[in-house]
Design a protein around this nucleic acid. Structure first.
Lengths: 211, 211
DNA sequence: ACACCGTGTTAGCACTGTCAACATGCGAAG
DNA sequence: CTTCGCATGTTGACAGTGCTAACACGGTGT
């Protein structure tokens, strides 16, 4: 906008790795405004660098967003891990596996609602880049966590092996859809109580449905 | 771009209602390129009108997108209605209600995959405008259809009334999430067979879960 | 007859992504 | 030690965007 009166112009940033600085500023912008708040020019401005320096480190805006997306996915996975750990109360293996499975979904939604900016950027591929050969998808940390939870359900006999295929994708889709509808979609204006009810209902339906 | 050599410059469009022309061109753009393909300038160009005439009919770009979104929702509802009608085979009321419920979800996903551009614009609110007091949400044609399907499940005794609340939102979220993941998300590169399997699995889980 | 108001036009501002041309400086090759 | 080359950052420009103010015109109500 006007100038860098605010926020101290960090002209003398550790120039040695500008890429990290750009990524950091990009993450900050995404965190508080979603993908569309991440503009190369603003990122460069905040990194105290000029106009098109970012092109030495990122092919284009989509590449920067993709890097931010990786970070966001990691953060999400972290949140999911703590959720899973906290759900390990019961002694019964089957029950514990169930609790973990549900905790995964709850953590997913909590992250989405808490870090809405990062979430919006986490799972939205940009049309460019390589076709993402599904290995990349499967190895996405949050998806891997969910998949292992479902494997655990099968191991503890709580889910028939015949029902295992695509159950991960379905469960993921369910929580993801609710997150999207609550954030950008028509369910944006639900109050906290209604949100919570919707989340509980969705989780319980998916829980019931995977047996 | 260069000029209107292609597509015949419709200079002499029925000027009497430019609003309809703008909306039509906006829909065309959205259909083939999603929300981000809809730029006011391009829409105006295609309508054979200049630079900022659209502002006499739409407050801003978000308003145009919102109008396009309404159209898209109607189209979606149409597709869902034909899907519901085609699923009315069985004579048993409960079974028929189930079939209709599932057909709703399948139609939703079919529309999303077929008309991906329109779908992307259908359920993505722009931050501006009024807070959308949930009546607006509930009266959205696709949601109303889904809700009535669930009511039918309750009437035929297939779904306990105690489980009715938020079941509509949950079911909607599930199919919506799969659509989003398949279109823009990490599941973009699933081939047709895998897509179909994922859809079947999700529908079956939601079907099982709502009992 | 006149003033008004709805509609369309022109010009312009502040942004954006992206690229080509240029500068600079450090490390390797001769 | 000199010199070449490459990686990185800068400047300036182009095309595109949303949006606004100032203006022009034409029908309608008083």
């Amino acid at each position: 906008m006007t100038d860098q009166v605010t926020a101290v112009p960090d002209r003398d940033r550790p120039k040695q790795d500008l890429r990290a600085s750009l990524l950091r500023e990009g993450i900050a912008l995404a965190r508080s405004g979603g993908a569309e708040a991440v503009s190369l020019r603003e990122v460069q401005r905040r990194a105290g660098v000029s106009n098109s320096a970012a092109y030495r480190h990122f092919a284009d805006r989509a590449a920067l967003l993709s890097a931010i997306s990786d970070y966001a996915a990691d953060q999400m996975a972290e949140r999911m891990r703590t959720g899973i750990a906290a759900a390990a109360i019961s002694g019964d293996p089957a029950e514990r596996a169930r609790a973990r499975f549900c905790a995964t979904g709850v953590a997913y939604l909590e992250f989405a609602l808490t870090e809405s900016g990062l979430f919006a950027v986490a799972f939205q591929m940009q049309a460019a880049t390589v076709p993402t050969p599904l290995d990349r998808t499967t190895q996405s940390p949050p998806f891997a966590l969910l998949a292992s939870c479902l494997d655990e359900l099968v191991e503890t006999g709580s889910l028939a092996p015949a029902h295992r295929p695509y159950a991960d994708i379905a469960a993921w889709a369910a929580v993801h859809g609710l997150a999207v509808l609550l954030l950008d979609g028509p369910l944006r204006d639900l109050d906290a109580a209604e949100r919570q009810s919707a989340i509980q209902r969705l989780i319980s339906i998916v829980d019931l449905g995977t047996h």
